[in-house]
Amino acid sequence: MDLEASEPIDLGAGDHQHLIRKAADGTIQTKSGQPHKTSPSPGPKQTQGKPHPKTGQRADSYVVQISDDITPEESSAVPGPFSETSIRRAFIVKVFLLLSAQLIVTGAIISVFIFWKGLKEWVLKNPWFIYAIWPVFFVVLFVLACCGKLRRQVPANYILLGIFTVLQGLLLGAVSAFYEAEEVLWAIAATCLVTLSLTLFALQTKWDFTLLNGVLFVLLLVLIIYGILLLFIQSYWLHLLYAGLGTVLFSLYLVMDVQLMVGGHHHYSLDPEEYVFAALNIYLDIINLFLFILQLIGLRQ
């Protein structure tokens, strides 16, 4: 006797036991010609696999086909780092607080260099001051950018970020000493306006600038090579073009880094534990914007 169940059978409900008893009763009645009573099953037993008929199988064999149904509740998406709105909001607030503190410290140091005439004259007479800060500056930057565990460890990450901010402020103050105070103030005002506008644009636009990470890095390498060549070429228009390209490039970098911080529907996003790295990226974008805008203003004078 062949018995085939084409519909799905729920093993947990014990439906397969009913089919097995029915097949056994039919087999006994065929052989003996008398009905056979089966004792109730003590409970459902779980069977695994999907048995199929083999070649040369006897006529009294039976086939039970079992199909597993996957319910929507069984497949659940794994929550990401920004699955909760409160986590993302706290991350963004922490980044902006760190960034605000960095900009305030940097602005204060620049003000000392441009308004203290004695210090300004000393920097102009001793250019070695800038070259002495560069090695320490790059060492701290390398540690913050490449040492992920140290960057997430409190309070080491705050200490390194504070040292980096002070060194960056000293460098910017020394550079600002070569410009007039009015030019520096105009550059600061323009940088604040551009930064605020680009930040609002990055938060509102539907364009995903995080996909441009590789392209912007290649353009940055080209800009660095262009800047090295300008050390040996004295041309007003080439320097003006260099300053304009740098302003555009770091404007795009600022939009991208803001979207990396916000996360959400963007393709790439930063981990909530990378608040120091996010603040560092946006801070460097703003500083480079300031330097290129200052160069543009200085070239127009």
Rank of each mutant, 00 (worst) to 15 (best):
P155F: 05
D285Q: 04
W186G: 01
I87M: 06
L185T: 03
G49W: 06
P8K: 13
V218C: 02
V194S: 06
V215D: 04
N281P: 00
I109A: 07
K117A: 07
I20F: 05
L284G: 01
H265A: 12
H18T: 11
G43C: 03
P44V: 13
I133T: 10
L280W: 01
S32L: 13
Y268W: 12
D68I: 05
K125G: 09
V139H: 05
L289M: 14
L144H: 07
Q168H: 03
L98M: 15
Q168F: 01
D285A: 04
I188S: 12
K120H: 02
W134V: 15
Q204M: 04
V112F: 08
F178S: 14
T47Q: 10
Y226M: 09
H266N: 14
W116K: 12
G80K: 08
Q204P: 00
G169H: 05
Q204V: 03
L231E: 02
F96L: 14
L196S: 10
I114T: 15
V140D: 06
V64F: 06
L103C: 03
V78P: 00
Q29K: 14
L216W: 08
G56W: 06
A190N: 01
L170N: 07
D257C: 01
V105F: 02
F209Y: 15
M261N: 07
A108V: 10
E73F: 03
S76A: 14
L216Q: 08
Q153A: 08
S100W: 07
I109M: 11
L231T: 07
W122I: 05
I133W: 01
S76M: 13
F82C: 07
V95S: 09
S269T: 09
L220R: 07
V248R: 03
S67Q: 13
Y131T: 14
N288T: 11
A108M: 08
S83H: 14
Q234T: 09
E180N: 06
D69P: 01
L167Q: 11
K120S: 04
G162L: 04
G173P: 03
L260P: 02
G14F: 07
S67D: 13
T210S: 04
E7A: 05
G14Y: 10
V143S: 09
G148C: 00
L240F: 08
H16R: 14
L254A: 03
F217C: 04
V136P: 00
Q168Y: 02
A108T: 10
H265G: 06
G263D: 13
H18F: 06
H36K: 03
P44Q: 14
G162E: 09
N288C: 02
P272E: 04
L3Y: 10
F209A: 15
R58A: 11
E74M: 11
A177E: 05
L291K: 13
D25T: 11
F250H: 14
L240T: 06
A23R: 13
K31P: 00
L98N: 15
L284E: 12
D271A: 03
Y236Q: 10
S235P: 01
F91K: 15
G244K: 05
W186Q: 08
Q34F: 05
G263T: 12
G227E: 08
F91I: 06
R88D: 00
L99F: 08
K45D: 02
A13Q: 14
Q34N: 12
T27N: 09
Y253W: 13
I130P: 00
Q168R: 03
I70H: 12
A190V: 07
E73K: 14
S6W: 03
I225E: 11
A24P: 00
W134F: 11
I159Q: 01
Y62M: 09
